[in-house]
């Protein structure tokens, strides 16, 4: 049976106006996400991962604008929605955790309120009035905190964000995001700034919940190791574009783009302990002066003169795409 498409993005283009001129942070990104699937989005810092999904949520910062593209969620055009319609999708159907849990929780509100307001905004199966409603919300809040593994949730609900450790805050943010049982969770770097043990706990937690609640997950991360362990499919981004896409196992075992290869080579491997990392030489190009040529060309070990012509995303097998003219030689 073919899986149903949950999220579909077509030729998305998001531009920021800055003092130094317009910056197209997302340039023609397309993606498809099926129900129940987990998609990993990888790429170096500044490659446009966060902006892509902020665009999906309609939460691009004030100086930015979606210029083109189509965003469909369960067949509905999110860009055509009114503010109120979109508000009802956010949080209830598509939830998001932010890159930095330290700043994403409001420092002056207690955790119980930050959880409760989410349910107040969306859940209509709560009792309508009074103490019964309060109790229902409280019970669910306790349940959510327990779900993400916060000890003694009843007491901790009364506390402010600063009274929790970094890992705890990350979990609280996840608890809030999951409070209305969304169909899609966008987890933006859910594990940066966490130590390795807690990192694993948080990731396992999201994977467990995914199986339990049957939701789809987008993992945004720098870390291909995380992707290998948790994601069905991978999308590699570079300088505002998708450069490679496919099943996780295919990408890891037979990548078809030099950038992906370089990323894979930069993963520290346990068996190579003691050796230095292999960071990719050179820098991400300045998005203000990208030209029509392949954007990875200045750093690419395989570059040939033909790479200065526009390079398109190409389907090389069903569900498998790359943006490199020499992909065949990489296989």
């Amino acid at each position: 049976m073919k899986k149903r498409v949950l999220l579909e993005v077509n030729a998305l283009k998001t531009t920021f106006s800055t003092r130094a001129g317009p910056v197209t942070a997302v340039d023609g990104v397309s993606l498809t996400l099926n129900e129940g699937e987990c998609l990993g989005v990888v790429g170096e810092s500044g490659s446009g991962k966060s902006v892509t999904f902020a665009s999906v949520m309609g939460l691009v910062r004030a100086n930015g604008r979606i210029e083109e593209g189509e965003i469909r969620f369960m067949g509905r055009d999110l860009r055509a929605m009114s503010a109120e319609e979109l508000r009802l999708v956010r949080g209830r159907e598509i939830a998001m955790t932010m890159q930095d849990a330290l700043t994403a929780l409001n420092p002056s509100l207690r955790i119980d309120e930050q959880l409760a307001e989410m349910m107040e905004a969306h859940l209509d199966d709560l009792p309508v009035f009074g103490p019964a409603r309060k109790r229902a919300i409280r019970d669910r809040s306790v349940e959510m905190l327990r779900l993400v593994g916060i000890p003694s949730p009843e007491a901790r609900l009364q506390q402010y964000p600063h009274e929790f450790s970094g890992g705890m805050r990350q979990r609280i943010m996840i608890a809030i995001a999951l409070a209305c049982r969304p169909k899609l969770l966008i987890a933006d770097e859910p594990t940066t700034a966490l130590d390795v043990t807690i990192q694993a706990q948080v990731l396992d937690l999201i994977s467990d919940l995914r199986r339990e609640l049957g939701m789809s997950v987008v993992f945004i991360t720098h870390d291909l190791g995380i992707v290998a362990e948790h994601c069905d499919r991978v999308m590699v981004m570079y300088a505002g574009q998708v450069v490679e896409e496919g099943e996780t196992s295919e990408i890891i075992e037979q990548c078809r783009h030099p950038y992906t290869r370089a990323l894979l080579a930069s993963i520290p491997r346990p068996e190579l302990r003691g050796q230095s990392l292999n960071p990719i030489p050179g820098n991400v190009p300045d998005l203000r002066d990208v030209t029509n040529e392949c954007r990875f060309r200045s750093r690419c070990a395989y570059a040939v003169p033909a790479c200065s012509r526009p390079v398109m995303m190409r389907e090389i097998a069903p569900g498998r795409k790359t943006r490199c003219i020499r992909d065949g030689e990489l296989a």
Binding site: A54, M57, L59, R61, R87, L88, V89, R90, G91, R92, A95, M96, M98, T103, A104, L105, N106, P107, E117, M118, A121, H122, M173, I176, A177
Partner: peptide
């Protein structure tokens, strides 16, 4: 936290 509040659909 204002962006997150928006993401929550408040």
């Amino acid at each position: 936290y204002v962006t997150f509040a928006n993401a929550k659909g408040l």
